[in-house]
């Protein structure tokens, strides 16, 4: 039996989490929508890829998004810690280009705990920090059924629970996450219909 996604997503507040993979952006936005409130997006100012608020509006109202641009990762982390500690934002997303050292990771955890907010690091492959509460790998999945938001979310690390993998899709109209039934279940449903 697969663990319930609702037990694992949204992940715990007062902690920082990590996500990587090509769909990490939609994971962060889904989390921002689930948390409500304002999200601070901290990134380095030289990052070549630009967030597109028009696309983001399918997930989250872009008015709830603040962007902080630091000139290097140190500034990004400093800003994130400040924001996590203040508790004025519910989620802080950090785009990281270098691995976090233990001190930095721990500081972020403590800040998130103090501010009762959630931190989320968008990391590169293989750059996970030991301090993170959970680590997710998210990738889009090609779906024959024509669903263009189908993704697989793989929980790779979990400090307090089991690991698992879910197939999800995003419902842009209600801005809600939906679970895609297992292929086995799907077949079962199909048989039941016949």
């Amino acid at each position: 039996m697969r663990p319930d996604l609702a037990d694992h997503f949204p992940p715990r507040t007062g902690r920082t989490h990590e996500v990587n993979g090509p769909s990490s952006l939609s994971f962060s936005l889904a989390l921002a929508q689930a948390r409500g409130g304002t999200t601070l997006w901290a990134r380095e100012d030289w990052a070549p890829e630009q967030l597109n608020p028009v696309g983001i509006s399918a997930y989250l109202d872009p008015a709830k998004l603040l962007i902080a641009q630091g000139k290097d990762q140190l500034e990004v982390l400093a800003v994130s810690e400040e924001a996590l500690r203040s508790g004025a934002v519910t989620l802080v997303v950090m785009e990281l280009s270098k691995p976090l050292d233990l001190t930095a990771g721990r500081r972020l955890q403590l800040a998130a705990e103090a501010g009762k907010s959630t931190g989320l690091c968008l990391i590169q492959d293989g750059m996970g920090s030991n301090a993170a509460e959970t680590r997710w790998h998210c990738a889009p999945v090609f779906s024959e059924s024509g669903d263009s938001t189908h993704q697989s979310w793989d929980l790779k690390k979990n400090k307090s629970g089991t690991l698992s993998k879910w197939e999800v899709r995003w419902d842009a109209e209600t801005r809600r996450l939906r679970l895609v039934p297992d292929p086995a279940q799907r077949q079962g449903l199909a048989r039941a219909q016949h």
Binding site: D45, L51, V54, I56, I67, A68, Q69, V79, E82, A83
Partner: peptide, 19 residues
Amino acid sequence: LITRIGTRIGLENVQRFLP
């Protein structure tokens, strides 16, 4: 928070999107 972040990275670097 914006002010405090602004003292570190400059107030113009805390941004938002407008349509």
